[in-house]
Amino acid sequence: MKSFDYVITDEVGIHARPAGLLVKEAKKYASKITIKKGEKGAEATKLMALMGLGVKKDDTVTVEVAGDDEDQAVEAIQAFFQQNF
């Protein structure tokens, strides 16, 4: 399993549209990708669960990637976070 921490800089946090794009991105990989904020976690392929985390600006999230293609996946998801959140 790979993981990284990320501090959200986007003004409205993980909001609807980029969350939807994240779902699309996450679905490209076989690995299970989980976004964690404190106690709560959501799979990156589930839009409403992701939005339900209520991730806001300045929140720190932990992204965990586990699976056969975890090396490529973690790289792509990290780049995605930097671009969108």
């Binding site: 779902v23 839009l47 409403m48 669960a49």
Partner: peptide, 16 residues
């Protein structure tokens, strides 16, 4: 227009 794209994605949500 993006809101309609988000609505489409919501309709595909696995948990829902």
């Amino acid at each position: 227009a993006a809101i309609f794209e988000v609505h489409q994605m919501m309709m595909e949500d696995e948990d829902y």
